[in-house]
Design a protein around this nucleic acid. Structure first.
Lengths: 202, 202, 202, 202
DNA sequence: GATGAATGAGCCTTCATTCAT
DNA sequence: GATGAATGAAGGCTCATTCAT
């Protein structure tokens, strides 16, 4: 494979560029949420974004880079929210902090569930990308940091499990038609706390 | 869309047909596990199966029906295993039965993790199919039955959550490079029991 | 570059395939002769060949391979003619043999001058291909063999020069509107013999 | 086609314009020499020239006009050199003058062989342009003039042949990796003199 | 005049599917 | 029934050229 970059082609310097770039991502997100990967093609995205196909390729070197940018942007937002939550709960105990961060993630998921899931599937099929991998690591690292502070054993695995519990339940809930994020948060809390209880020394 | 059927074109009655059908599914499974959806195309499948593209279409009306058949076949196997597990654990308490069934599912996943995940992603993108939906319901129904017997409230949601916890953790574990199913089973148990504890009257 | 093969994709086994393959080459030759590289695109070729674009790609993995095949085929024919000429002139002296071979080449060129030149230009822009390079060497080798037999010094350079004289004059003649191959043969003879005279021991 | 002009849009009168024009031609020459026609595109040229794409189109109405200008400029330089050579050899005999002019051409070719050949191929594919055709004629006319002075028959054909011999041998030599212009000059001399001998009355 | 964002026709190529043998 | 040649819609992407700023 001739190494297809997953990062945008150039940083938009002019105001107009920013708009175009954003319109493309927005259109792609919309299509992905509505029709999944199947319906996502560059011509379609460009048309929906009200932009010519040439402009699209001015900013994104290939189709995958659009999906990559979308994943990156959403995860960056999530990271910011998680950091905020971590700070807010700083004073509280381990359980409270972890719950807060997981809750943020769930709410994030519930805000655009179809998109969240389409992106998650898309990422799994995307060729490995260093940037995205790092970013993913950073999300886990936030939990790892908290766990480590409390001397939890093997914090990486624990962090991964905790996040996975939330993700799994969120997907299933959305698929089943649920739309009340807080109801799910409560259930996930039970699972997460149950999972943590035996390994957190009191 | 003119509503493409997802089920095989005809039930293969003859020995020869069976073999062809199986070879096709096997080839598709292999490709899906190795290369994901991206690498899956009918010509490739036919060649790998040692079958002409014409024959492939004799048995499967379209590409999606192959994926559909694959999902169906694997889930049928899972169902059988779960039934067996349920019977074996019948005498035990609620926790034990649920744990047993979840464990079966995890081991099933770990047997062919790349395939399991590719299929799960594929199913999410497939157009809704009555047959597959029913089958999925049946898996949940098995847990629901057990829960109901123990007077658990809203057993459908609980069943869904329990399965989702296992699925989520399994995907994350595989992605992280784990390969020890039993280690994961233990961790999932913690989460599942923690989740169940408050809602199971003792 | 991801290594684009210049050789046909598969050898046609059925009668029908042969026809398709040939029709494609013929169409490509026609377009190349009439419009040059500029007018050569796969859709155009397919249409003119009375073949679907899909069929074209069944036999030629990419556009360049069509041009490559064309070059190869024409040069193979030339080689055959040159061999014949060499045999026929075997008894004669060095001059005679070389003249005969050069004459064959000129006549070959004059049979389809626009095509010959378009292909020659195309080959220069094509990525280096081992197969074509070898074939080109073989043409020169035929002259080298004759020269070596007569103890000519540095036969490779001499062979190259002799051929180049003919090629250069042929291109210029065609471009100027000449169409009488034999008139040109006579003039090329003068140049070639003049070139050889000082280096051929008498 | 709406008849695209091959000549620069306007004569650059100001110093600034001259520089831009030249930078564009230089960049185009460089790309053409390095990558051939394939790599030549207007955006690439503009970037390499350190000029905006808009400015490029200010001076050259289309891509072909850039190539045309390049051909024109190089051939103008060649013409000047040939004139100089003709003057210098004026006193000598026919052979000497012709040899001198051919030698100039060969050295010109060897100074930038990749470019010379790329341009020659490009010119062949360019739509006929009156300006370039005239210029080409002028090169031949210089030889024709000398030949006519010596009462050579059909001087146009002879001039064409003589030039073609040199061109053909130069291309082949460069392609074979030769880089010693003088060595080639000697060989071309042999061919040219051999060609001329029978038709020049002594 | 200069800039570079935007445009869109058009090209290469793939792949699900059909159909003649 | 099997085969595999053929089909063509569709999609990714480039690049010559225009135009608003």
């Amino acid at each position: 494979m001739p190494k297809a970059p997953l990062t945008p082609r150039k940083a938009p310097r002019q105001e107009r560029s920013r708009k175009t770039c954003d319109a493309i991502l927005k259109a792609a997100a919309d299509i992905l949420a509505r029709e999944g990967q199947t319906g996502l093609n560059t011509n379609h995205v460009a048309r929906k974004a009200g932009v010519s196909i040439g402009s699209l390729y001015q900013y994104y070197p290939n189709k995958q880079s659009i999906v990559g940018a979308l994943i990156h942007a959403r995860r960056a937002a999530l990271l910011a929210e998680m950091e905020q939550a971590a700070e807010a709960a700083e004073a509280a105990g381990l359980d409270e902090i972890v719950r807060a961060m997981v809750a943020v993630r769930l709410r994030h998921h519930f805000r655009h569930p179809r998109l969240a899931e389409a992106l998650s599937r898309a990422e799994a099929e995307l060729p490995a990308d260093r940037d995205l991998r790092q970013q993913r690591t950073r999300v886990e690292a936030m939990i790892v940091a908290v766990l480590a502070e409390y001397y939890v054993d093997d914090p990486e695995t624990v962090a991964r499990d905790v996040l996975a519990i939330g993700d799994g339940m969120a997907c299933a809930a959305v698929e089943a038609g649920e739309s009340d994020a807080e109801a799910l948060v409560a259930r996930v809390d039970r699972a997460v706390l149950g999972y943590l209880a035996p390994i957190v020394g009191d």
